[in-house]
C-alpha cells in the first residue's frame, strides 16, 4: 500500500502519460491499455471515498469516458494518476453532495453478518479474533465519519501514494491546507480505531 511519496519520475516517463500521448497521436488501443492499467486504482479510490453501496462502477466508467474526451487537449503536467483522480474525485464529490441525506457508510459488519454499531468504534472493543473482513468494515465506517475533504486527503496520501503537492492539485487547494486536513484526519482516525487496535493486541 502507498505511503507519502514524492513524484520522482518526470511526467513523460509515467506509464499513464505515455499512453495518453499515444492516444493523442491516434493510437486508440492505448486507451484500452490505460483502462486496464488504472481501473483498479479508480475503483479503490472511489470505494474508499464514497463508502459502500454507491454506484462506483458508473462513476469509474464516467471518469474514463471523460479521460477519453479530453485526449486532444491533454497536457502532461504531472503523473497520470493525478489527472485521473482529479476527474474521479469531482465525480465522487457530485455523488456525495447528491446523497446528503443518506449516510455515507452503512454499518460495518463482521464476517458472520452481525452489525458493528458506530458506537463500537468509540468505546467497546470488538470481539477477539477480528479478521481482515471485519477490519475493512471498521475502517470504512471510520473513514465515513470524516468530512469528505479530510477523507479524500487521507485516501490519496495513504492508499494512492500521492505527494502533498499532488493531493493539493486533486483537491484544488494548497499544500498547507492538505497538511492540515491530513493532521485532523489522522487524529480523528486514531481516536476511532484505537480501541480496536488495543483489543487486537491484547
Amino acid at each position: 500500500m502507498g505511503r507519502v511519496t514524492e513524484a520522482t519520475e518526470p511526467p513523460e516517463q509515467d506509464r499513464g502519460v505515455q499512453l495518453m500521448l499515444a492516444l493523442q497521436q491516434g493510437r486508440e488501443e492505448a486507451f484500452a491499455e490505460l483502462v486496464e492499467e488504472y481501473q483498479s486504482a479508480a475503483f479503490s479510490m472511489l470505494r474508499r471515498v464514497l463508502g459502500p453501496h454507491q454506484p462506483v462502477e458508473d462513476l469509474a466508467q464516467e471518469a474514463f469516458l471523460r479521460v477519453w474526451r479530453s485526449r486532444e487537449s491533454y497536457q502532461p503536467r504531472g503523473r497520470f494518476t493525478t489527472f485521473l483522480y482529479r476527474i474521479t474525485y469531482n465525480l465522487a464529490l457530485n455523488q456525495l453532495r447528491g446523497n446528503k441525506r443518506k449516510p455515507l457508510s452503512s454499518m460495518p459488519q463482521t464476517a458472520d453478518g452481525a452489525v458493528l454499531e458506530p458506537e463500537d468504534l468509540q468505546g467497546a472493543a470488538p470481539e477477539a479474533g477480528a479478521d481482515g473482513r471485519d477490519w475493512a468494515g471498521i475502517i470504512e465506517s471510520a473513514l465515513g465519519q470524516l468530512p469528505e475533504n479530510q477523507r479524500a486527503a487521507l485516501v490519496f496520501q495513504h492508499y494512492d501514494g500521492l505527494s502533498l503537492a499532488e493531493v493539493a492539485q486533486v483537491l484544488g487547494t494548497s499544500e498547507k491546507a492538505v497538511k492540515s486536513l491530513l493532521h485532523r484526519a489522522r487524529t480523528r482516525l486514531r481516536e476511532l480505531l484505537q480501541p480496536y487496535h488495543e483489543a487486537e493486541n491484547d
Binding site: S44, V56, W135, A136, I139, E140, H158, Y159, L189
Partner: peptide
C-alpha cells in the same frame, strides 16, 4: 494507524 489502514483491501 498506517498498519491498520492497510487492512482495507480496496475494491
Amino acid at each position: 494507524l498506517d498498519d491498520v489502514l492497510d487492512q482495507h483491501p480496496g475494491a
